[in-house]
């Protein structure tokens, strides 16, 4: 199955290179310098950005689900994404000339603060009501989102908000996506801590009795989630549900051993976002539909399915 996933990812990446308004043909690729330039400046970076975003968001979802011990949450809709947007908005408002790294740091910081807030709320919820967690998450995210809208309205920055709130890859060019490599690195690093996250997912008591520094792992997890989410929101905007849908599907297909499934989760995330992006490029050709809109529909439908389809027990 792993092989199928790898092949699918490669196939879709190739398709992504050749889909778009300007025509690029495989046959004339080597004789046409213009086409090569297009690949290097636009299509290539775009494809890489999509793959990194999809993979990193899926990993973030898996980690957050471990941290709050609930399958129905993900950072983009549970406050982290909105927190990142709030951070950039504040920087844009008060220090518009700050270097991009400072903006990033601020976005990551507010994202971290809002996700820590979410975690604190979740820990007060009764464990007997598992669906309360996603519910609270969605409302929490919506409230922070409304705060963002409020500030944006006052500062007349609504257009910016639209860019951050709805993920889109059409603006990705060489020189405007490289920050995402950081997200890729963070995602890869968190793979090293996969076992720790899996243990944290079994609860505080188990973690402590296994000799794990619970708080440290939780902070590490929140940090990686916040950085990846902030980077994604700044470069491409919010893509809801990736972090929710993908880990759930993978868990149903391949079980819950995080160390084994995390690469699958990352690749599946990349595949789904890539497919959505390609659909968005083709369905209203030559115009584009943002990947956030496409994935919003896909994600909501899968979410409903997850909510009602009885979970097959492990064979």
């Amino acid at each position: 199955m792993r092989l199928t996933v790898v092949l699918l990812l490669i196939a879709l990446s190739v398709v992504s290179l050749f889909v778009g308004v300007a025509e690029v043909r495989v046959s004339t690729l080597w004789s046409d310098p213009e086409a090569l330039r297009l690949l290097a400046i636009s299509r290539g970076p775009r494809t890489i950005a999509v793959v990194i975003t999809g993979g990193a968001l899926a990993i973030c979802g898996a980690i957050l689900q471990m941290l709050v011990r609930n399958r129905f949450v993900e950072p983009m809709t549970a406050g982290t994404g909105q927190g990142a947007a709030l951070g950039i908005l504040l920087v844009t408002l008060f220090a518009p000339d700050a270097p991009i790294l400072a903006k990033m740091a601020m976005a990551s910081f507010t994202a971290l603060a809002t996700s820590a807030g979410f975690l604190a709320i979740v820990q007060r919820l009764p464990p007997t009501q598992p669906l309360l967690v996603p519910l609270v998450g969605l409302i929490y995210g919506a409230i922070i989102g409304a705060c963002v809208t409020f500030v944006a309205f006052q500062a007349d920055l609504l257009q910016y908000i639209q860019i951050w709130m709805n993920g889109e890859f059409s603006g990705i060019l060489q020189g405007r996506y490289e920050l995402l490599w950081v997200a890729a690195a963070v995602g890869a690093l968190s793979y090293l801590a996969a076992d720790q996250f899996a243990i944290v997912g079994m609860g505080r008591t188990v973690s402590v009795s296994l000799g794990l520094n619970y708080t440290q792992v939780v902070v590490l997890g929140l940090l990686s989630i916040s950085i990846v989410t902030a980077l994604t929101v700044v470069t491409v905007g919010m893509i809801p549900f990736v972090g929710l849908v993908v880990p759930n599907i993978v868990s149903r297909l391949a079980g819950d051993n995080l160390r084994l499934t995390l690469p699958m989760t990352a690749m599946s995330g990349a595949i789904l976002v890539l497919a959505s992006d390609i659909v968005g490029r083709l369905v209203r050709y030559p115009y584009e539909i943002p990947v956030g809109s496409v994935f919003g529909i896909l994600g909501a439908v899968v979410f409903l399915w997850l909510l009602y389809a009885p979970r097959r027990h492990a064979q």
Binding site: L131, L135, L138, P240, G296, I297, G299, A300, L304, L307
Partner: peptide
């Protein structure tokens, strides 16, 4: 809880 969550996801889906 399932009912509310369904409703909220319906709303998200309708908006999407």
């Amino acid at each position: 809880m399932r009912m509310i969550l369904t409703g909220i996801i319906f709303a998200v889906l309708f908006r999407a």
